[in-house]
């Protein structure tokens, strides 16, 4: 898909996840980003796994590193560097922080899966041609690096290496870097052989947006406006005592963002339908 409509909606959800405070609004951003990722082409599982485990880690760790909140619910033994007095505010803040992480990770993942990488590179090349070459190398290298990592791991396991242990697994990093350098040289040579670096370069005309892309642009613009308007109005506080989340701004933002996520996901499915 064209990077513009996808980028608008994903940027709005990313900004909302990071800058909004109301837990319902944050949860709505995470749900909307999740819906968008669900509508994207596979693979999706690794992004979901990364987002979920990171969020869980933040939720678990937060109460033990925060020393805030006035509503204790459990007190443990004293352990140096850890706060073992768990408060209700710390738990809710941990949930919100986890949801922020899920929302931002999934918004980025949805953009990666949906936006046409070649068009992103072409757009980048207009403003920074040198960076575009590096980005092109990196975008091609990542899949081959993944294949090389799999190949190295398989060849080592075939030689009885216990790769679930840290040291044998870490020992594969250096050969992997060597292989990736070889690959990047080959790719750079192939680019030069196809005339990259010549004096005059033109661009393939980009196709005009189709109906789903135009609709997604509208949804993205509306979501950006909703989030931009909500950020200065959303004054929800977690500490010292939890604020009332049932505010008009919080609930309206959550409803609108959730609606935008659902509409975005349906539009993406429509765009991906074979014609």
């Amino acid at each position: 898909m064209s990077p513009l409509p996808v980028g608008l909606l994903c940027a709005a959800l990313l900004a909302g996840s990071v800058a909004l405070s109301n837990p319902f609004a944050i949860a709505a951003c995470a749900a909307a980003a999740g819906a968008l990722l669900w509508a994207s082409p596979p693979p999706r599982a690794m992004y979901v796994w990364f987002a979920a485990t990171s969020a869980l880690l933040v939720f678990v760790v937060n109460p033990f590193v925060s020393v805030q909140g006035l509503t204790p619910i459990w007190s443990g033994p004293q352990i140096p560097l850890l706060d073992t007095e768990i408060t209700q505010e710390e738990l809710v803040f941990g949930i919100a922080a986890g949801l922020r992480l899920i929302g931002s990770a999934m918004a980025v993942a949805a953009f990666v899966r949906l936006a046409d990488g070649d068009r992103v590179l072409a757009a980048l090349a207009r403003v920074a041609p040198r960076s575009a070459m590096i980005a092109a190398l990196a975008s091609r290298l990542l899949p081959t690096l993944e294949q090389d990592a799999t190949g190295l791991a398989m060849a080592s396991r075939s030689r009885a290496a216990q790769l679930h242990r840290r040291r044998p697994a870490a020992a594969l990093a250096a050969p992997l870097v060597g292989l990736s350098l070889e690959r990047s040289l080959m790719l750079a040579e192939a680019m030069e052989a196809r005339g990259y670096g010549g004096a005059v370069r033109t661009r393939t005309p980009q196709p005009s947006m189709n109906a789903p892309e135009r609709l997604l642009t509208v949804i993205g613009v509306v979501t950006c406006a909703v989030v931009a308007a909500a950020i200065p109005l959303d004054d929800y506080r977690y500490y010292d005592l939890l604020g009332d989340p049932f505010t008009t701004v919080g609930l309206a933002t959550a409803a609108l963002v959730g609606l935008a996520g659902a509409a975005g996901a349906v539009t993406v499915r429509w765009a991906r339908r074979p014609r």
């Binding site: 010549g198 005059v200 393939t204 005309p205």
Partner: peptide, 14 residues
Amino acid sequence: FGLENLGCDPREIL
């Protein structure tokens, strides 16, 4: 990609 590098007329590329 190669046609862009040659500076080909954009209308002819695709």
